[in-house]
Design a protein around this nucleic acid. Structure first.
Lengths: 149, 149
DNA sequence: GTAACTGCAAAATATTTGCATCCTT
DNA sequence: AAGGATGCAAATATTTTGCAGTTAC
């Protein structure tokens, strides 16, 4: 019989300490808790979300420093937004190696406010006016997500 | 206060007080100065840019309030960014009527840091996974602008 | 004259930095 | 043991709010 891959055993396949180790980061409670949060969350997270969910377990300053570290290591990336909020999301593919490959479309739900990475949808290229040399492109689509339709 | 008539807005026959009037806003020094700034600037502006350029002429709080008012009226729009900065740019077409039509691509120069609206380049549509209903899309391209190539 | 707008002060938030202590390796 | 990571306190920075005085209409 085929092995059913549920969310749960998908998570079991992910080894949080290992990810930290691969990125030459010491394995600490705070980093584990925060990284776990990302793996257990559907969409992108703001600093405030993380602070709320970790509660007293992790200091506010540590959250700032951890997010910064994770971005530098390529474990998470900053999600572009149309407003001015700062969101972070896991680099699903192989950003862990230090290069970000977040050229996928980000979707923001107007209803539930969640931001999700549509890893399978790549940003289309556009023709720019003469004189502009493109290097990277980001795209944000807003609308209704599957939970809110 | 005397409105400085630059070659540019003279040529385009842009009447700053008129724009305010059309939007049922009283014509004040601060609003004129700030709106003028937008018309005389190539790209998008951050709150800090405006504060620096208006100097003591306009209070910091007034800048915040004016930007908010202008966005509400559809005179300017918030520019999506890949980092977390807040940028504003003129709505070039007919956003003054209260609806935003900023579905154009925004370009950020890695060299000079300027953000410009590519009004002539519209955001392409993408095919989303089942369950996502798109309403709006934004796109940010980074690279080198014509001045920095 | 009246409503709208501004500036100032201060409150509320958000982010960064320094340093002593603790924990991972 | 040593270097890195954390927590706490405090310094900065950013944004919002209240209110009294001023200005546009």
């Amino acid at each position: 019989m085929a092995l059913a891959i549920t969310l749960d055993n998908l998570h079991n396949m992910i080894n949080i300490p290992d990810i930290l180790k691969r990125n030459s980061l010491s394995i600490t409670d705070g980093r584990m808790k925060i990284l776990e949060l990302f793996y257990n969350s559907e969409g992108a997270l703001a600093h405030a979300d993380i602070e709320k969910k970790t509660g007293l377990a992790v200091d506010r300053v540590t959250v700032y420093r951890t997010l910064q570290t994770f971005v530098e290591k390529g474990i998470i990336h900053q999600v572009p937004t149309t407003d001015n909020s700062i969101l972070y999301a896991l680099c699903k593919h192989d950003c862990e190696k230090g290069h970000h490959h977040d050229n996928h479309v980000h979707f923001v739900c107007n209803q539930c406010e969640a931001t999700v990475c549509l890893d399978e949808v790549t940003v289309p290229s556009v023709k720019l006016p003469v004189g502009f040399r493109p290097v990277q492109a980001a795209m944000i689509v807003t609308g209704l997500c599957k939970n809110c339709i």
